[in-house]
């Protein structure tokens, strides 16, 4: 068993009368891909928003087991979760910096490192060498990820001008440039064609093998979910209805009910692309 990276306990999120997430508990392990699936409106993105500090959970504890000690994410401000706990995320509706170049998007992701190296701007303003080295390092790291997503030739183009699939990959690369311990991907395969989905599978398993970080994945594309997940948590109406390996979840009657509504026996979760 790999060590637990993220522990979610009794997470509940209410919006007025609506309970979007209801007493959810699960764990995500380091070096594994944990998928959160469920029908539309099941509360998946809300879980991400709680994890990354965009919402304050109504109830619940979110513990990140960091090398430096456990951190309670529910008590941290959004940007600190990214900066200190090193949880990175992507968004369902891609959020790049569209008028900045591809390379700049990746450099901005390394803001905190560069900021410290620049002596909070003052040092760099007077041309300290430390900042120049740091910037060179940032450039190298960006280039590495540009190569991995195959966008080196487009480094100086506006991010907003890239095709959709490239933007998706760039957003993941940007999240990786923050040097995260946990990467949260919100529907990374949405809008991709089957070939691109397959490439994404490879890309994500590559990250898992190489970087040894935990990946949380929200996805509707079952070819992605079933193909690469180590562990799956199924949500319906904010509650966890099943969890386990892809094989067990696929055969779970509760999951089949949630997806198909009818108690048919041999159905698998619909392949949605």
């Amino acid at each position: 068993m790999k060590p637990v990276l993220l522990e979610v306990e009794h997470l509940t999120m209410r919006f007025g009368g609506l309970i979007a997430v209801d007493d959810l508990s699960f764990a995500a392990r380091q070096g594994e891909i944990t998928a959160i699936i469920g029908p539309n409106g099941a509360g998946k993105t809300t879980v991400f928003n709680c994890l990354t500090g965009f919402y304050k959970p109504t109830v619940g504890r979110l513990t990140l087991h960091h090398p430096a000690g456990p951190l309670l994410l529910e008590q941290m401000e959004g940007f600190r979760i990214a900066a200190r706990a090193r949880v990175a995320r992507t968004f369902q509706n891609i959020r790049l910096f569209p008028r900045m170049t591809v390379l700049e998007n990746l450099i901005v992701a390394q803001h905190n490192v560069l900021m410290r190296a620049s002596g909070f701007t003052l040092g760099a303003l007077f041309g300290l060498p430390r900042y120049r080295h740091a910037e060179q390092d940032a450039l190298e790291r960006s280039c590495l990820w540009l190569e991995r997503i195959g966008l080196v030739t487009r480094a100086n183009d506006e991010a907003g001008s890239l095709p959709y699939g490239d933007q998706r990959r760039l957003e993941i690369a940007r999240a990786m440039c923050t040097d995260p311990v946990l990467l949260c991907l919100d529907e990374p395969a949405a809008g991709l064609n089957p070939r691109e989905s397959a490439e994404l599978n490879q890309f994500l398993t590559g990250i898992r093998e190489r970087e040894k970080i935990g990946i949380l994945l929200i996805e509707h594309d079952m070819s992605v979910v079933m193909g690469i997940s180590d562990h799956i948590v199924v949500l319906d109406y904010g509650k966890r209805i099943a969890s386990g390996s892809p094989g067990t979840v696929r055969r779970d009657p509760a999951v089949i009910r949630a997806y198909l509504g009818e108690p048919e026996s041999d159905a698998v979760p619909a392949e949605r692309t």
């Binding site: 979760i81 900045m100 700049e104 992701a109 803001h111 701007t121 303003l125 999240a175």
Partner: peptide, 25 residues
Amino acid sequence: RLPIGRAWEALREDEIACRALGINP
């Protein structure tokens, strides 16, 4: 051309993305 300047422009483009990257808005 310094990190702070790039962060300004990034904030102009998308504040939510900035927060997700650990930039203190």
